[in-house]
Design a binder for these strands. Structure first.
Lengths: 67, 67
DNA sequence: AAGCAATCGGGTAATTAGGGCG
DNA sequence: TCTGTCCTAATTACCCGATTGC
């Protein structure tokens, strides 16, 4: 078990998320702006995406198709 | 061991799959709707197809014609 | 401090989904 | 039954200059 009780979710860059969904990084940002993906901000105003949440969104659509 | 335990399958766009099968993108769309091809959804409702699965379907159709 | 890749924004073309038709 | 084409609306991709990350 490489993790402690306090789970810290790794953060992904827009480019990394874009590769996972096979879309452009700009598209990922549009999803974030619409509130479709949780994200945090760097102090300089760049977005970072929790890996866990991204994977869930990616796997969700495979099985079902609910918004 | 050429493979890692966590392999991330690349995704193909509808147009790319259409070219591979030499059909129209809409036909690929219909195959997906019938559940004949596994696929993932972008958050905007566009489909993305796992490259591995597509290649397997292509190879299968070349050799035989079952079901 | 300096260099380079990445990520902001916006704006405009290109794809895609879906329905219906032949 | 299966596929290709036409249509509209929505989503996505590529363009730029400027800022940020490392």
């Amino acid at each position: 078990m490489p993790q402690k009780t306090t789970e810290i979710d790794a953060l992904l860059t827009p480019a990394e998320v874009a590769v996972m969904f096979r879309v452009d990084a700009k598209t990922v940002n549009r999803w974030a702006q619409r509130g479709l993906i949780p994200h945090v901000w760097t102090l300089g105003g760049h977005r970072r995406y929790p890996e866990k949440a991204v994977r869930e969104l990616l796997a969700r659509d495979i099985t079902r198709r609910e918004a």
